[in-house]
């Protein structure tokens, strides 16, 4: 009995020592004790896959592919992403001139969406107030970040702002892959609101609102 207890004790200690506790950090891949059908031979996004030449499961569409997406509702009109319209390109149809005004109806909802998207994608560099003093500037990592309240930028047409967000400019990267089309216009609308917050005069306010200011 003594030997049994000794061996038993040694075994328990060994198992605990080797296996450790729940939650211990480990570099080893999780053991699949009962594999069942947990891993199946099917394509999963962004994984390695030897079927394609590129070795990727997520394939890029062939060049020239047009997305058969749901149309965008622009003021009651259905717009598809391949159409040469200001909402898609930021330019007047058939020209290279930037469209002056946001083609989407500017509503409180659009501005709110713009504020949220601006917060996610623009504040790291341009800062919450748009002065170009975001965190990248504070840590001294970026040389030049545009101050969005510059007269030069205030005077740009909406289409140009949309174009810059979509395709980038100078050192700024393209944000079309990250921000959806509608959201880019929302950001443009919000940016205009940001600029107006610096440019507006007390006289622009309605008498009722003015009365609430002290």
């Amino acid at each position: 009995m003594r030997y049994f207890l000794l061996i038993f004790g040694v075994l328990v200690v060994l198992v605990v020592l080797i296996a450790g506790r729940r939650g211990d950090l480990t570099r080893n891949r999780p053991l699949q004790i009962f594999p069942d059908m947990k891993r199946q031979l099917k394509l999963r996004p962004q994984t390695a896959n030897s079927f394609f030449v590129s070795g990727l499961s997520s394939q890029l569409p062939p060049p020239g592919t047009i997305a058969r997406s749901e149309p965008l509702n622009v003021g009651g009109q259905a717009v598809y992403p391949f159409e040469d319209l200001p909402v898609n390109t930021g330019r007047n149809p058939g020209t290279t001139n930037f469209v002056e005004l946001n083609p989407l109806p500017v509503t409180a909802q659009l501005l709110e969406r713009g504020q949220q998207r601006y917060g996610i994608y623009c504040t790291p560099c341009h800062g919450a107030t748009g002065e170009g003093k975001g965190i990248t500037q504070k840590i001294g990592a970026m040389a030049v970040v545009a101050n969005l309240h510059d007269k030069r930028i205030v005077e740009l047409p909406d289409g140009d702002l949309f174009n810059t967000i979509s395709h980038g400019k100078n050192l700024m990267g393209a944000y079309a892959p990250q921000i959806a089309l509608e959201d880019r216009w929302a950001v443009v609308a919000y940016l205009r609101a940001l600029q107006l917050s610096r440019l507006g005069a007390v006289d622009d306010l309605s008498p009722e609102v003015r009365a609430t200011l002290k």
Binding site: R22, G23, D24, L25, T26, R27, N28, P30, L31, I33
Partner: peptide
Amino acid sequence: YYFTPKYARVGYQP
């Protein structure tokens, strides 16, 4: 204690 994702998966840090 061991045959559960609480042990098998938690803490995996490749």
